[in-house]
């Protein structure tokens, strides 16, 4: 259980049946969706359970994970 600013919550990894990868305008490299995302669920101040999917997309100069760098050649 995490004590988040918006209430108590939990985070859990996501698993996908197929190979998914994510690409954004800001992120230079496609990467595995499983590695880039997690599910966060929390109970808000009103007591309702909220769910969010969070994508954490490292960039460029500090490579830490398997990348799919596409070359235009």
């Amino acid at each position: 259980m995490l004590n988040l600013s918006m209430g108590n919550g939990v985070v859990a990894p996501l698993e996908f049946e197929n190979q998914n990868f994510v690409s954004t305008t800001f992120n230079s490299y496609d990467m595995s969706l499983e590695e880039a995302s997690y599910l966060m669920m929390y109970k808000d101040k009103g007591g309702a359970i909220q769910g969010e999917i969070v994508y954490l997309l490292p960039e460029g100069k500090n490579p830490v994970m398997e990348s799919c760098q596409k070359s235009g050649f």
């Binding site: 954004t24 969010e52 954490l56 500090n62």
Partner: peptide
């Protein structure tokens, strides 16, 4: 530097951070 994207469970993007 990282980009953080938050979606709701319907897939709509709620917010983002650098």
């Amino acid at each position: 530097m990282s980009t953080i994207i938050v979606q709701d469970l319907k897939g709509d993007i709620l917010k983002g951070y650098i």
